[in-house]
Design a protein around this nucleic acid. Structure first.
Lengths: 78, 78
DNA sequence: GCGGATTTGTACGTATGTATG
DNA sequence: GCATACATACGTACAAATCCG
C-alpha cells in the first residue's frame, strides 16, 4: 500500500514501488505489469492515480504500453 | 496564450478567447471545444483554470457540457 | 466473423491542499 | 479574508483496441 502520511504523492510512491520491482528483477523485460484495475485494488488507489504512476515509468523508459494489451517492462537498452 | 501581465484573470481571458472563436464562427454550433487537457496545454494554464473559463461560457449559455463526452458549442437560441 | 470480456485511452465531475497577492 | 492558480486524488462514463470462445 501507499503511505497516507507521506508528503510524497501516491502516484510517485507507486511509481517508485514498481520501478524497484523492475530493478530488482521481480518484473522482467517483456513481462506484463498487473493491469490498471489490479494495481488499483492491490494498492488501494484510484485508477487515475495508477495511470499517473505508469505514465512516470513510461516517461522514464522503464515500461511500454499498448492499448488493449497492457503495459510491459521495457527491453534493456544497449 | 494568456497574458501574464494583464490584470484580467487567466480564466476570464481564456473564456473571452473562446467566446470570440464561437462568435466568429471558428467554432460552430454542435461542434466540440478542445478538451480541457488540450486547452490546458495550448494556453499553458492549469486544468482548474480551464474549467473556470468553460464554466463562464456555460453560464453565458454559449456551450453545453456532457460528462465523459465533452463541451460543445450551443445551438443558436431562436 | 461475432459477441463478450479485458485493458488502455479519453473526458468530465468533485473535493481537498498549497501557495500567492 | 478572499480570489486566483496549480497539483493531487477520488469518482463516473464512454470509446478504442485487443483477445478469446
Amino acid at each position: 500500500m501507499v503511505d497516507e502520511m507521506s508528503p510524497i504523492p501516491f502516484y510517485v510512491q507507486l511509481a517508485d514501488l514498481l520501478a524497484k520491482q523492475i530493478e530488482e528483477g521481480k518484473l522482467k523485460p517483456r513481462q506484463p505489469l498487473p493491469s490498471e484495475a489490479t494495481l488499483q485494488q492491490e494498492y488501494g488507489v484510484a485508477r487515475g492515480t495508477v495511470r499517473s504512476a505508469v505514465r512516470l515509468l513510461r516517461d522514464r523508459g522503464l515500461v511500454v504500453t499498448f492499448t488493449g494489451r497492457g503495459t510491459f517492462v521495457a527491453e534493456k537498452r544497449p
